[in-house]
Design a protein around this nucleic acid. Structure first.
Lengths: 195, 195
DNA sequence: TTCAATATTGACCCAGCATTCAAGCTGCGA
DNA sequence: TCGCAGCTTGAATGCTGGGTCAATATTGAA
């Protein structure tokens, strides 16, 4: 009945996501977003809303990427708990392009840039982080039940320690550390928790 | 011979540093910097140069703060190596105002915001991080010589692991975790390295 | 073929950005 | 007391920011 969309929504979201991921929210001007997506100014506002709304859609796109990484690792029932956890970290830190590795984590970056310091976006970031924490905690609990976690460490704390190590690694990734160095850092944390 | 300066340079730098620390480089407009420092537009440009130069001066101010924290902890020869290291982390994560804790680390934030993604400021940030790494490494080496580091762990790696944990904690601090939770995270890393 | 519905386009808006500068002010040396 | 070096001031500048909109294009249905 009406004119169909011409742009590829997935490509637009992916390109814009990478722009935000690399340079952050504030430094990503609408003009830069238009350049990297190839769409027109009006099209952006018409189809994706204002900059903040568009950013949230890009975070959703990032979460979809995240979920894929989780599915094949933490969500792979063929893997033992610690193998799954290790595979997940490998997926993020090792089996990724140098480009993506060097950009760190969009959620960590956004938290540190503090997009609109005390506004709504912070909530989005937090709930996105839960997407990782939940399946990670599930695996740690599994390991815990199997007696594969060092004594005196609760599954919740072990999960926090793993995430803390991962956050650090992703800051270090942005600082230029290579895959091997980053892997060594998270492997050390795993070794400290695992029995 | 001429009119003397009226503003307190130290206060100006401290206030501006906190503005950059809290909201990042891009979101800290010159107007916001004028508001929080109380100086005039022309005065800023006359006495501190442009925004980028001013930002670097604020990073210097942050480094001075950092050096003070290092002096009384890592630099305190009355303390044993691990006690000094632990005291340093306490100083950053526990013995600090809720306000400052919640802002994380200016250097980590800047790295994640990626101020001018591939420009000169990144160098400033990196050399500033060396200010912490050097005395920390010295203490770890001391512990290593005294046989107080777990077998098979080099002082360099142990230092990187500590810094990784600290980076993670400062991201988590920005996410709202409290002093106790943050301390538990770095303490866990220390315990994993210490013998 | 016509028309309603929606997508696309880029010129346009103005608020806010970083930066400059000419004029005014202040206090010390002469 | 006067002159002037140099700090202070805020209006002015040009540019870029995010956001709007009327005109145009493209489709399917009638």
């Amino acid at each position: 009945m009406a004119r169909p969309v011409e742009f590829d929504e997935n490509k637009v979201l992916t390109n814009a996501m990478e722009q935000f991921w690399k340079e952050g929210y504030e430094a990503s001007s609408v003009q830069k977003l238009l350049d990297c997506t190839g769409i027109n100014r009006g099209t952006l506002y018409n189809s994706f809303g204002d900059k903040e709304t568009f950013f949230k859609s890009c975070v959703d796109q990032y979460n979809r990427l995240s979920e894929k990484q989780i599915e094949t690792t933490l969500g792979n029932s063929a893997l033992q708990p610690w193998e799954a956890i290790s595979a997940y970290f490998d997926e993020i830190l090792v089996n990724t392009s140098n480009k993506h590795r060097g950009m760190g984590c969009l959620l960590v970056n956004s938290l540190c840039e503090s997009v609109n310091y005390d506004k709504e976006i912070k909530k989005v970031i937090r709930s996105s982080q839960a997407l990782v924490r939940k399946p990670l905690l599930a695996r740690v609990k599994q390991a815990h039940k199997a007696g594969k976690v060092k004594k005196g460490i609760s599954p919740e704390f072990a999960t926090d320690a793993l995430l803390n190590s991962l956050f650090g690694a992703r800051v270090n990734a942005r600082d230029g550390k290579n895959a091997k160095q980053l892997k060594a850092l998270v492997d050390f944390t795993i070794a400290a928790l695992r029995k």
